[in-house]
Design a protein around this nucleic acid. Sequence first.
DNA 1: TAATCGTGGTT
DNA 2: TAACCAAGATT
Length: 350
Amino acid sequence: MRDLSSELLAWYDAHAREMPWRVAPADRKAGVLPDPYAVWMSEVMLQQTTVAAVRDYHRKFLQIWPTVHDLAAADDADVMAAWAGLGYYARARNLLKCARAVVADYDGIFPETYAELLKLPGIGPYTAAAVAAIAFDRRETVVDGNVERVMARLHDIHAPLPGSKAELTARAEELTPQDRPGDYAQAVMDLGATICTPRSPACGICPWREPCAARDAGTAGELPKKTPKKKTPTRFGIVYVARRKDGAWLLETRPENGLLGGMLGWPGSAWTDDPEPQPPFEAEWTELSEEARHTFTHFHLRLKIMTARAGLDTRPLRGEFLSQGKFNPTALPTAMRKVFDLAHLTLRDD
DNA sequence: TAATCGTGGTT
DNA sequence: TAACCAAGATT
């Protein structure tokens, strides 16, 4: 039986992608391991998110909060504001919970085992394996979208995801080597990201082209199969953008759970087929000519924007006025940011 | 188990 | 343009 993992590691030694939080294979061979905090941070940010999108956020977080102690002591609102734009905001809430748990329960030292990591907030099967393997070089098997795709092709597995996940995981586990499991984990993912891509895989230059069953069968480009998803519906909503004469904006912190949970946003209606108007205070609300459009994972959203001026004595039913200096539009999630971009000109300073 | 949860880039 | 896709976790 050929040593597939060794062949992939040889490829990785020459072709590893460069990432700020990653220790290059040559340095790892010299005994260097990365900062577990930086690795954990990167893996959480990389959940369903591209490396390109993560880079700047990772740099920013490490600069503002260099250690897990710093992050654990941070204000919730500051962390959510720093995460704004990256999406999947439950990750940011769990990031903070996890940092506080590591400080409180582990004296600020990240646990090294899969089982212990898995107990922490925001750390699931993938991230627990990734941190254990990459930060501590433990023999754990990462199974992300890349690994699923590579295994489906290597073994020419046509059963559709997500049902085939267990089998793909088993195939991945039996390939994980005792030596350099951390580099191996990163190697499979690099392979999937750069060679064994979803469409038009570069089989001609793949280090696993010879043992690859799908390459042999000519089915690589159509794997892995996935059960079809239903198309995304459209929901509607009404948002209210109000500004006080002193320049303050009316905003609210959204509930912890649910869509955009814990993030700053404009008060407004629920997002439904036919939303009910819910002005946050009595006023002459003016409808903006253009609506804000945004697409989430599972629905399209169209927001009608109402604007009004508020008096200094206005007491809103919901939200609170944030002074000009305290309100930073970059702290808004993208959907709310689009509303601001459309509305702020009509409410500009007098 | 299946639905929920963002965003930006690619095809 | 619409669908697809990205180093998934949670409930």
